[in-house]
Amino acid sequence: MMTNLFSIFEPSSSIFNFSMNWISTIMGLLFLPYSYWASPSRWSLMWSKIMFSLHKEFKALLQPSHNGASMMFITLFTLIVFNNFLGLLPYVFTSSSHMVMTLSLSLPLWITLMVFGWVNHTKHMFAHLVPQGTPFALMPFMVLIETISNVIRPGTLAIRLAANMIAGHLLLTLLGNTGPNLSTSFLFVLISVQMLLLILESAVAIIQSYVFAVLSTLYTSEIN
């Protein structure tokens, strides 16, 4: 039962043993020509306003020397939110529900920040391991705790995104599988609940993309 249930997240379409489901991850490139139209559409104008608002927020969170990095986190947000919404469509592979993708986003970013911080701002990185005002006797424990919390950051980012996408999809699948066994009156109730859950999943898709991008921004702001 559980194997069949989680099999909805497994890539199934393949050509010459190459999974075709992952192509959905880069389908967002098809929307790039819209930004070069002489007369932008309402969708392009709305998306530009969203990007401008995110740029101002990320710029406020980053250090003055890292202001240019806000565009990188806007791109990260765009990629995640696109894949989250794409996974809500029927028969479309949800790449953001796999740890392979989420770790591929968080781990290289975290390693880059750590290498840059420890090479260029070694004293500041050491200072982060001991919060200000810590008693001398507790310093070894605080260093251990801060080190562990720093090391697990890419894992928590990846697991948070993947787990939230998996949970919503599993709930929709479980409720959808009960449809053939219900009477007509209960079927209308099930469809209403499914529509509400789909709206909730749409909100989760945006929120989790925003959380991933904001936390990545906050981690970057710690590197002075």
Rank of each mutant, 00 (worst) to 15 (best):
L175G: 10
V143C: 14
E201F: 10
V119G: 01
K59C: 06
L30T: 06
L79F: 07
Q194N: 13
I26A: 13
L54Q: 03
L182R: 08
M72T: 00
S65A: 11
G155F: 15
L182N: 06
S14M: 11
A203T: 14
N181P: 01
S19M: 03
P11R: 08
T75L: 15
A213P: 01
T147M: 14
N224I: 12
S96V: 15
L175E: 05
T220V: 06
S221Y: 03
M99N: 06
S96F: 04
P131F: 07
E146Q: 15
L62N: 03
I152G: 05
T122H: 15
M27K: 07
W110I: 03
G155V: 13
L5R: 06
L129R: 11
G28V: 09
Q194Y: 03
I50R: 00
M125R: 15
P180K: 07
Y210G: 05
S35Y: 05
I159E: 09
G168Q: 09
R42T: 06
T78E: 00
F212M: 12
F52H: 09
L45D: 02
L30C: 05
S95E: 02
N21L: 04
E146V: 03
F116A: 12
F73Y: 14
S14N: 03
F58K: 06
L45N: 06
N4F: 03
A137Q: 10
G179H: 08
V115F: 09
H124F: 04
F85T: 04
M165N: 12
W118F: 15
L174F: 05
L32W: 08
S35D: 03
E10Q: 13
W43P: 00
